[in-house]
Design a protein around this nucleic acid. Structure first.
Lengths: 333, 333
DNA sequence: CTGTTAGCGCTTTCAC
DNA sequence: GTGAAAGCGCTAACAG
């Protein structure tokens, strides 16, 4: 491996000083058009690439951000990631993608390693950390956008999803169709979104004069398999349940499978609702009634917000709230 | 924003030199256990985080790698990304995720920006660049692993998928069930995997004494919508087609939709095969016959290979070839 | 319009 | 076991 071309090489070749090359590279003025072109030619010929590492050391900007999600193989997150990366690319940033895999220790570790990498900011999706830990872990980061998580002690710039409202509407939809005993696949206990959805679910039941029984609830991981197991368990122990409100679409797909293997028809014996409206939701049989989120846009907006934050518009930035639109399909018509 | 804590702050506080702190931070020896502990305490108390940026400048290692995919919202890639990131996390690396969105200019730009970020290596998946451009763009990178792309002029460490074999088996499966006029959704023209699949498809047909007609083939983007359009177009212009071999599962799902809207039953009127076996493949109706790839493992192995390459085991590293296992389901029983 | 000096935060090398 | 000096590749600040 031959030594890399540095700015000094370009400067020597062009017979100018480092600063002149630097100005050419960064398109700054205070340099004649002639020298700029001459230097550009030499840069191209030599294949010089400025070291963002060296530049960062002095400018204190790395041109990188960190994106933390639970699990990039969950379409909800991979679509957010795509939105973030699209916006980042458009503005010259690179994105570190980190999965926490529902592990709070890993979430902390990742937050720390991004700090050591001196990212200009982070987008943290669906954090599972207790608020106290989160406050400490976020504090050293120069810019932060939270997705789907709200803190009580301190405000961070956020993209919020109206999970409570979405859950309420979905549950009301089930109630309107005569369901009284509605099961809840509640997702991970530490999920803020899960807690909001539970609120909406309970609220809707109580407004209808129904007391949501604790035994109607099962926590589960936000994946198909865990949803299947939780649903099967729930349907077996509470045979009078006629509808399932599921934390997300993956859980709902699992619920569909559980119903199938228990010989319960959907929606006739058991109605099922999902959450997120991932592409799969419309394609399974029966197609899922669910709450849609414009996931890609969430990612885009999160990155835009973060950029504003990085570029120092303290105070002027505002949280963005996305609605969860109820999409009615066959699993709960 | 208060100034960041630097190693000098720690050194001053501990009453030692920079070097001693450095040794403690990097767990090097040549330092007594006592001082090490004392320094560690001060580091914790002050919340010091070493600057990987500054370290990189002297060590010439950044602890980062670049992962380039076409589209992270395609489950095939998001699952690879998860595998890569998992392995990276385990070894202390961070991953830049970049989407090319089928745009070769963007692929070049991303390759270049990763170079400027001085990544220790890159994993390039399903590159769409012409070989000549690719050779130039890859040359300056210190370590490279190619996924599902083989070059003719120079060898790069690769994870290869036996797409040709998989396509042949899938096509043979269709032939064995009496299909003679088999359409091909061929994917993007620049896709190496697509070219290999086309080879396998043609090979199988020719071995069966059938001349694959050019009008049986449609190129399309590897997404549902494009698959639907291409399939509809194909079925309309060649009504005698009784089976479709699709570039990937997303295309196959699109083909299913096209059949539905044209009133053609699957598999009775038209048999359909997909490729990849993404989770959705088993969940749509009818469930897709497809060729499975252990995508997550592809990602893991790609990262392992890259690490070996980074750590300089020239020559000893070997390409890894994954088979594409035919999974028979309802869409082509 | 161009150049010189200093320094970003760390590690390498060598000296004690 | 510990420290001093030099330098990684670049840019900010100022001088000409």
């Amino acid at each position: 491996m031959p030594r890399r071309i540095t700015m000094a090489d370009v400067a020597r070749e062009a017979g100018v000083s480092l600063m002149t090359v630097s100005r050419a590279v960064n398109n700054k003025d205070g340099i004649s058009e002639g020298t700029r072109q001459r230097i550009q030619e030499i840069i191209d010929r030599l294949g010089y690439r400025p070291s963002i590492i060296a530049r960062s050391l002095v400018t204190d900007r790395t041109g990188t951000i960190g994106l933390i999600v639970i699990d990039n193989s969950n379409p909800f997150f991979s679509e957010i990631a795509r939105g973030v990366e699209h916006e980042a690319y458009a503005t010259g940033y690179n994105v570190f993608l980190c999965n926490t895999e529902e592990d709070t220790q890993r979430e902390l570790a990742v937050l720390r390693s991004l700090e050591e990498k001196r990212v200009d900011g982070i987008i943290l999706c669906s954090s599972r950390l207790p608020e106290d830990d989160l406050l400490v872990a976020l504090e050293p980061h120069p810019a932060v956008v939270l997705v789907n998580r709200k803190l009580t002690q301190k405000h961070y710039l956020s993209i919020l999803l109206n999970d409570e409202g979405g859950a309420r509407r979905a549950t009301e939809h089930l109630l309107q169709h005569g369901h009284r005993n509605i099961g809840l696949l509640a997702g991970p206990p530490r999920s803020y979104g899960g807690q909001q959805r539970m609120k909406g679910y309970r609220d809707a039941l109580e407004s209808a004069g129904i007391c949501p029984k604790p035994e109607w609830t099962r926590h589960c991981l936000p994946i198909v398999d865990s949803g299947r197991e939780a649903a099967a368990d729930l349907l077996l122990s509470c045979p009078d349940i006629s509808a399932l409100f599921c934390f997300n679409d993956l859980n709902a797909v699992g619920a569909l499978q559980a119903c199938q293997s228990l010989g319960r028809r959907v929606p006739d014996d058991v109605a099922v609702t999902g959450f997120d409206d991932i592409p799969m939701a419309a394609l399974v049989t029966p197609a899922l009634t669910t709450c849609r989120t414009p996931t890609y846009e969430v990612g885009q907006q999160a990155m835009s917000l973060l950029l504003e934050c990085i570029n120092g518009c303290e105070g002027e930035c505002e949280d963005i709230i996305f609605e969860r639109e109820l999409v009615i399909r066959e699993s709960a018509p």
